[in-house]
């Protein structure tokens, strides 16, 4: 069964390669204007060229920085505030409905407000990423606290645990799986907000670089940049999933 799976995975790679070859042929025969769809060979050359010239990696690093710092702020605040809210059913009853209102709100809708307050600055970008990516982690943490089994609470009371001890050794570990799942979502949002913010505010980064290539109709470079975004999105999701699995190893696998 496993061998069969591997064969199919290999075939799937071949299929993906076939799509790229088809794309190359379409471009070679001039079926689509290369301004809209450059051949993959040229996009690849543009990628290699820009990396070798050193004109791409600094921007990638800047975008990663925006994303990472914003995500760090969001995760820290999300777990901290989520714990504060989640620990008490009364506070939950007061705050949860208001927080739920923020959930479907597009995080990018914060940009116009934040630009008016902070101007087109790096700090504005970090505030929006931090605040916008906060909600999945915060709501998931609240939810994780809300689902502590009543029996666990009874046991810790019987053991004479202090409230503080209960929070750190029972409630928080109980909320961890959900909080981490929330942090994974927050990371995706942080990446989206970094790109949007760079396009909007002119803060340097891959988002702005890609936009400039489009303005100059340098489509091979544009596709190279977008390809890098795919790599960033894929790798960051993989890293968090890996961390999630590592950190939750103590949990009995369901």
């Amino acid at each position: 069964m496993k061998a069969r799976r591997l064969v199919w995975l290999g075939l799937s790679f071949v299929f993906a390669a076939a799509i790229i070859v088809a794309w190359q042929l379409i471009s070679n025969f001039g079926l689509v204007s290369p301004i809209f769809l450059p051949p993959p060979s040229r996009a690849w050359n543009a990628l290699v060229f820009n990396i070798e010239r050193g004109s791409l990696l600094p921007y990638v690093l800047l975008t990663l920085q925006h994303m990472f710092y914003g995500w760090l702020i969001a995760s820290f605040l999300g777990v901290a505030i989520g714990s504060l809210i989640g620990v008490s059913p009364a506070v939950r009853a007061y705050l949860a409905p208001m927080l739920e209102f923020f959930r479907p709100l597009p995080a990018s809708a914060l940009f116009p407000i934040a630009i008016a307050i902070f101007g087109l600055t790096e700090n504005m970008l970090l505030v929006v990423i931090g605040f916008g990516a906060l909600w999945p982690t915060l709501l998931a943490t609240v939810n994780g606290f809300a689902t502590v089994k009543p029996r666990l609470e009874e046991v810790s009371r019987l053991l004479g645990m202090s409230r503080r001890k209960f929070i750190f050794s029972v409630a928080l570990p109980n909320a961890m799986p959900e909080a981490l799942a929330g942090m994974r979502l927050s990371l995706t949002i942080a990446l989206i907000l970094s790109v949007t913010g760079e396009i909007l505010s002119g803060s340097d980064g891959l988002g702005r670089w890609v936009m400039l290539q489009a303005r100059g109709f340098r489509t091979p470079d544009l596709f190279a940049g977008v390809l890098l975004f795919g790599v960033i999105g894929y790798l960051s999701a993989q890293i968090v999933t890996y961390l999630e699995r590592r950190l939750l190893r103590w949990r009995a696998t369901p």
């Binding site: 199919w8 993906a16 489009a214 489509t219 544009l222 977008v226 960033i232």
Partner: peptide
């Protein structure tokens, strides 16, 4: 079988954030 075949191309497209495609669709 079709799912297995499409897995790699689909997983290659999915992680690209939509906003990063704005410059491309703007050109098109």
């Amino acid at each position: 079988v079709m799912y297995w075949l499409f897995e790699v191309p689909l997983e290659a497209i999915r992680p690209i954030p939509s906003v990063a495609l704005i410059p491309i669709v703007l050109l098109i």
